[in-house]
Amino acid sequence: MTNARTLHLKVARADGIAPTLRRVHLVAADGARLPPAAPGAHITLTLPAPAGGRPLHNSYTLVSADPEAGYEVIVRLSERSRGGSRHVHESLAPGDGIEATAPHNLFALHSQAKKHLLIGGGIGVTPMIAFVTHLREQGASFELHQIAAPAEVGVFEALLAPRAGERIHIHAGRDAFGLTALLAAQPLGTHVYACGPAGLMDGVEAAAAALGWPETHVHREDFGAAGGEPFVLRLAASGIEIAVAGDQTMLEAIEAAGVDTPSLCRGGACGVCMLPVSEGTPEHRDHYLSEAERGAGCLVMPCVSRSRSATLVLDI
């Protein structure tokens, strides 16, 4: 899908920073200035699918974004890669062209915050790097707690080394980290930002809520938990039946069937891809629909949500 918002980029540099992490530096293919992006923004790359299937659209947070110097992303090789992260790791080389959306920000820093508490888990470090760079420049109050698998602590230390300081803490595993005590000690006016595995982010939300934090001070960024049981999707208006594989999202299956449907963040946050449900029970995984809307069961976010029933009928 190409539109006016599509950016034509090329790979300026790509280097492995760990066996499963590759940093890719992208610039405009024609050398022009790129749109600016605030910390927390992401772009969606169009990546070729293996065996000539429909292209994949994977969203990556910008680790740094400069209209002149270009965009930087860090891509983790997914064990269950559908081909996107594998392509970035194994095929993408300097000089290659690549299409991307303009940056969108669904994980922005709160301008009124007195303090920013950053909690990253694993590859969830990417927005944190952009945040730390920005907050340092602003002289703002912040604290970063990055959780890494014990074997990867060194990788994260090296990654954060240029920004190191007493306000950056790297913990070997989630158990090495006292979340409740940390949240309980935060002064009024603190905003917390979590990015990482769903379990970590749910834990931050639950612990903050239990301590009386208002929801408006708790921010999270999802990568979109793909995967689950396969099911069948029926598009009532067009009469198309689509099999959604276990390692495929509903949105990808709809796109693979040749049906164009709007989408933006592909992470269950923005609400752009929302579709009407006429039969079946959705399994909601987004952060957009309210409890009441979920209960009504009439809407679904196909980018992350799945189906509890064997068949889900959409009114499109």
Partner: peptide, 10 residues
């Protein structure tokens, strides 16, 4: 008082 308070106060 508020300068010394932690999150969760109303």
């Amino acid at each position: 008082r508020l300068a010394a308070e932690t999150m969760g106060l109303r």
